[in-house]
Design a protein around this nucleic acid. Structure first.
Lengths: 173, 173
DNA sequence: GATTGACAGTTCTAAAAAGGAACTATAGCG
DNA sequence: CGCTATAGTTCCTTTTTAGAACTGTCAATC
């Protein structure tokens, strides 16, 4: 499977990974949420090669995750800002941060603490069900093929196509 | 920055990315949550090269995300199961799925629908504050350096070290 | 007026990683 | 014996990435 093929997959994870499934991209986005906006600042903070940084920024702009906005003319200079689509990646970053906080910290403890302005407390992010508000656990979730399902992998009950593999039972994720 | 250097960083995102910051690894984990356990099944479903698959599985086992369990002797055969540490990646996967569902679907709609067994409804995952239960938005979160902070990037107020850059204001993420 | 520095990249070559296909080893089955 | 299934490994080619230097524009400094 090539990089570009990910976008074509009938799977929201695969399609998301076409955008964010690369270590540098996620680190660039971390910087964006830390209010970093300019090429040089990304480059200094991340110690990424300039080539790759230019490439990743271009890709994120083309996917609508960042906007490239001029902040001065003469010479033309641009900065990179999160779009609403980019801001919606916040839960992804927070989920990754929290997993790292729980499972990857060293003896010194967490590098960053998060404070919720609304309630004033240091918190952890928790993933809950939009309907009942309960925290989600993999075991307590069933999946069903949706309208955009890959009929090869998740064959619809009624059509005559032979499944490529044995029919699957309901899944998590 | 080399791959291995990520683990050393004083940032939970960087350290998490040392484990999951690669497109194949996240696709392998997707399969794990879909109850896939065996080498051949991963390989067929993902169309990953056997070489890479072997490498990624080995890495995930070494990080304690998967366990490699024999399910028969003669010949020895192993299957890969999520550990508790691996199961804790569920919110990360769900956050990615949800972002893809919202921003990357084609005209056909979502590939998969998720049903919460506890309440019986099709749901979306929502990231909330552990303290007040409100949904999290990047703008409403401040960060402070924690005990494991990088003093270079987040200098402690009292010590005499000159900050490498101008002192930062509080951040999101 | 020449020099230096900031910024946002681009260009070049060498090294590392990934892709693709075939091969190995073990056992059960007919 | 030949065939299939499983879980990898080996070999070679192609693609990406790393690392460093270079370009071009303007502003401020010597």
């Amino acid at each position: 499977m090539k990089w570009d093929a990910l976008e074509e997959e009938s799977c929201s994870i695969a399609r998301s990974l076409a955008v964010i499934g690369d270590r540098w991209t996620l680190l660039v986005l971390r910087e964006c949420f830390l209010r970093v906006r300019r090429f040089e600042e990304f480059q200094t903070n991340l110690d990424i090669t300039r080539h790759l940084l230019a490439d990743r920024l271009k890709k994120l702009v083309s996917y609508g995750v960042l906007r490239r906005i001029p902040y001065q003319d003469c010479p033309k200079r641009y900065e990179y800002l999160l779009t609403p689509k980019g801001l919606d990646l916040y839960p992804v970053l927070m989920a990754i941060v929290h997993w790292g906080d729980v499972h990857m910290v060293d003896e010194r403890g967490r590098p960053l603490l998060h404070e919720h302005k609304n309630c004033g407390k240091v918190f952890d992010p928790v993933m809950v069900c939009s309907e009942c508000g309960e925290p989600l656990r993999a075991r307590e979730v069933h999946t069903h093929p949706g309208p955009g399902a890959d009929t090869d992998r998740f064959p619809a009950g009624a059509n005559g196509k032979a499944p490529r593999r044995r029919p699957r039972r309901a899944h998590s994720v």
